[in-house]
Amino acid sequence: MKKHYWISEKPLNIQGVVDLVIRPEAGAINTFIGTVREFTEGKQTLFLEYQAYASMAEKKMKEIGEEIEQKWPGSKIAMAHRVGRLDISEIAVVIAVSTPHRASSYEASRYAIERMKEMVPIWKKEHWEDGEEWIGDQKETKRGVPLEGEVT
């Protein structure tokens, strides 16, 4: 069986991710594509560098997929995240969710990306004209462990 959750050093193929969730039971496929933004609050990004703890990241993405299948029965999900140097407008992440009806495909897709930002060990380094910095925006609980169900 093909991998549904993976970290890639090569450019992501959107259709390749979508194809993994196409099936006769589905009436909707929602695709989320995260790209590299040039300007953040007026500051220009030259390029980004992504790094992952690949084996753990793939495991955590799979867990997110399992959470989604529980919350939205009948859904199927695939997610891929790129690592390495990415230029402006390059694709960093692709998430595809198929569901029997459209409403849950939107909800599940949103859940997937928010949850990914919380608990999947992937980091990005911003490179600007005048410097560089690893950016983190992970939410943490008091225990230091992100819990299921914190995303609403």
Binding site: G34, Y50, A52, Y53, S55, M56, A57, K59, H81, A92, V93, I113, M116, K117, E118, M119, V120, P121, I122, W123, K124, W134, I135, G136, D137, Q138, E140, R143, G144, V145, P146
Partner: peptide, 26 residues
């Protein structure tokens, strides 16, 4: 071993310990 751990967790022989600074994928 690829699972988030608490501060109180005791390390066992063979465990792989990873420091995970705040993440920012997506």
């Amino acid at each position: 071993n690829e699972e988030f751990a608490l501060n109180e967790t005791i390390i066992e022989n063979g465990d792989v310990i990873a420091f995970i600074p705040p993440v920012s994928g997506g």
